[in-house]
Design a protein around this nucleic acid. Structure first.
Lengths: 121, 121
DNA sequence: ATGGAAATGAAAATCATTTTCATTTGTGCT
DNA sequence: AGCACAAATGAAAATGATTTTCATTTCCAT
């Protein structure tokens, strides 16, 4: 489970450090990489175990992975056309930290997304 | 989609307001209620739409439902035991509004969750 | 009653994820 | 090089939650 890890990692980086297993798989196929879906899942799991990668959940329950530590951002998504803008979440980081502290939580992460209609829609 | 909603709701109450669709179904069966799994799913969805019920995700991605207090709030979820605390998100509201404005988005909503390990875990 | 709309549920379809298992690859040893 | 054995790989099947389909049943207003 070692030859594929770096390849999966590379894809995650290029993807902006934010993708589901299925997406990683599709991306790798598109780039001509030869890898099986099973291996993608296994690599992602081992990367998570090694705390190199973080796992979150989309609204629909699909697991999404991202490099941890790497500057993370949030999304502003258009309900109409699906356009997505990466935005800063400084306020959120602080909020998350404060709240976690107040309730004694450790190893804290968070998700946040804004959605609405973009100017064009 | 109206005759079953109250029954599903009643079960959610008795369950301590925290159960997956499958669990609600099993509970109802055990109590002799006659209902189909499909209907349980549909009722839960409609209750979510009506904001009577809240939906979260377990670690494994399964959706769990519970009665919600009504006022818009966010969650602080423990990765270990699943305990959930409802928290205020004033900072988020402002952030969302600011960001949306900056990019000209309308009809804006948002999601935000914090997760980590609670003091006990 | 009667017709049509809404609700229901059984069974099939979907879809992400996991498991199984046979094959391939890598590594160390002689 | 040749050999053995462990780890890694991936195709296909299994799993499990959720959704869809579609025929039937229940509600209501006429």
């Amino acid at each position: 489970m070692s030859r594929s890890n770096p390849r999966v990692l590379a894809i995650l980086e290029r993807a902006g450090g934010f993708a589901s297993a299925q997406e990683v798989y599709r991306l790798m196929q598109r780039e001509g990489e030869s890898i099986g879906l099973t291996t993608v899942y296994r690599s992602l799991q081992s990367l998570v175990n090694d705390k190199i990668v973080d796992v979150l959940r989309r609204e629909d329950g699909e697991a999404i992975y991202r490099l941890c530590g790497g500057a993370h951002h949030h999304h502003l998504v258009c309900k109409g056309c699906g356009e997505t803008i990466e935005i800063e979440g400084g306020a959120i980081e602080k909020w998350a930290k404060t709240m976690a502290q107040e309730f004694g939580f450790r190893e804290v992460g968070h998700t946040a997304e804004i959605f609405g209609l973009c100017p064009k829609c």
